[in-house]
Amino acid sequence: MENLKLNLGCGERKIPGYINVDKFGNPDIKHNLESFPWPWETDSVSQILLIHVLEHLGKDVETYFRIFQEMYRICNHGAKIRIIVPHFRHNFFYDDPTHVRVVTPLGLELFSKKANKEWARLGQSNSPLGLYLDIDFELKETAIRPSSDWFRLHPEKNVDIKLLQQEANIYNNLIEQYDMLLEVIK
């Protein structure tokens, strides 16, 4: 089977057209995402959704790496992986004791061989995880969702993303979540 679409860590949010996977509840497939190998064939997956899931996984860095290695193994070239996580400086992240991992755009770019090579060329010290782990994911899109606190401070409807990012580096609770899209490169 190929071109599978997986909704990993679905919880009660089953999505039609996807294989809904979780270790709890009544998913289509019950599986612990921190248990390896995953039950899908190499190069069989074209889409993965991780909606408010990745921040719950990989407290141990080696487990976190294995998750990315498994995604890389099961995905075909060009597969898309949508990752939505709470912003690490928002109450949604740090009020939940089950959140064990900060996930950021730069943290995902560490798994890009292209970025790894460019950083090495420039003499930067970012960890070249794509090269170390022999996996390759390109970050294609990043969207940030401003919080109600942002709109209380800046009630205009058009969000100045640059200002939002600058102020979020100083103040908590301005960005609610990241929505990021990775593409698998093989």
Score class of each variant (00 low, 15 high):
73 R>S: 05
146 P>S: 13
4 L>E: 01
111 F>V: 00
87 H>C: 07
51 I>P: 06
28 D>V: 04
126 N>P: 10
58 G>D: 01
101 R>M: 01
159 V>Q: 06
83 I>V: 15
169 N>M: 14
146 P>E: 11
152 R>N: 12
116 N>R: 06
13 R>D: 15
184 V>E: 00
106 L>G: 10
161 I>K: 14
112 S>E: 07
109 E>T: 11
120 A>M: 11
23 K>W: 01
165 Q>A: 08
125 S>P: 01
135 I>P: 11
13 R>S: 13
60 D>W: 03
132 Y>K: 15
186 K>Q: 01
7 N>A: 06
9 G>L: 08
90 H>C: 12
83 I>Y: 06
131 L>W: 01
36 F>Q: 02
116 N>Q: 07
140 K>G: 00
96 D>E: 09
96 D>F: 04
116 N>M: 02
59 K>S: 13
8 L>C: 13
68 F>T: 06
185 I>R: 14
103 V>Y: 03
36 F>W: 00
48 I>P: 15
39 P>H: 03
86 P>W: 00
97 P>Y: 05
22 D>P: 13
42 T>G: 02
125 S>F: 11
177 Q>G: 06
61 V>P: 04
141 E>Q: 15
6 L>K: 08
97 P>D: 05
96 D>C: 06
26 N>I: 09
7 N>Y: 06
138 E>H: 02
118 E>P: 00
28 D>I: 02
7 N>K: 07
